[in-house]
Design a protein around this nucleic acid. Structure first.
Ligand SMILES: [Mn+2]
Ligand SMILES: [Mn+2]
Ligand SMILES: [Zn+2]
Ligand SMILES: [Zn+2]
Lengths: 148, 148
DNA sequence: ACTAAGAATGATATGCATTATCATTAGTAT
DNA sequence: ATACTAATGATAATGCATATCATTCTTAGT
């Protein structure tokens, strides 16, 4: 059980508050899903998380995992990342700041990177085109140290 | 009929050479598909191109358009771009140099951009992580001049 | 504690884009 | 012209995401 605490709040606290604010209910499945998502390596697919959860509770449904990963995104705790043509992946955003990804074409590893200079140049590039940027996606595909 | 000519070769020439080299055949459909793809605004989906082609030749099949857009990619004349969660889009690479995209969240417009500084910083960022970059994807989502 | 209201779950069905299959058509070399 | 076989086009299969709906469970009110 990993617990990152920010401003005296855990991810579970924030989720509970979000549920309350929206008139949604707390359930065993929701607790299990958040716990598993936090402990599993990030960038997991729905199926990845479903497999982990099934071991503890074989009755859990795929649809429930799917729905609640979406809900975690709505609550601001997770975000979906679409890589290549594969399935949707999710990563925890709680306790993490914005970053981009280097993705290994051989082993599939994700390396998280951030470059303030690039971020600023992107802003400028948008501005130069009369474009109001809201979000961006920078993915560099290639080979990691182990695979090059 | 638009004809960009590079080193005395049109896109059709290159396609024909690719087909010959691979022992593949020239067909009316292949000629029609390349022509339509060149004349249509880029960033089109398979369905977009299929609709255009159907008007000239109602007997053409969706699968044929699909297969041959893929083939154009193999031949180095086109490339697939996956945006958001929607369908695959294709753009002509013949006569075009590398660029990234600003994508309007409202009207869906693609603005093509290039920033050599960003390109170089990406190389550096990869290198700093012992990563051998092969290709990258930079997409900035936001609102264009008309939609902001 | 009991109950009513309705949100959540999980099995299954549906939707949608992509890709495979296969009988038929058509391009190419001889 | 013929034989060979690649390409086509209709259709089926696949993969993933999402919708549906009967049943279960959470929660607020008594
Ligand atoms: Mn990440
Ligand atoms: Mn483009
Ligand atoms: Zn690797
Ligand atoms: Zn716009």
């Amino acid at each position: 059980m990993i617990s990152i605490i920010i401003m005296n709040k855990t991810a579970a606290d924030i989720f509970d508050e979000y549920l309350a604010a929206k008139g949604l209910r707390q359930t065993n499945q929701r607790r299990q899903i958040l716990d598993a998502f936090i402990s599993v390596k990030s960038h997991c697919t729905i199926a990845d998380l479903y497999d982990v959860l099934k071991k503890k509770d074989p009755s859990i449904g795929f649809a429930t995992v799917h729905r609640n990963l979406r809900l975690l995104c709505e609550a601001g705790l997770a975000q979906e990342i679409k890589i290549g043509s594969g399935k949707a992946r999710f990563e925890l955003t709680f306790g993490q700041s914005h970053h981009d990804h280097l993705i290994c074409l051989k082993c599939g590893k994700f390396i998280e990177v951030f470059d303030m200079q690039i971020e600023r140049l992107q802003e400028k590039l948008a501005e130069a085109n009369d474009f109001l940027p809201r979000k961006h996606k920078l993915e560099i595909y290639g080979y990691c140290r182990q695979c090059r």
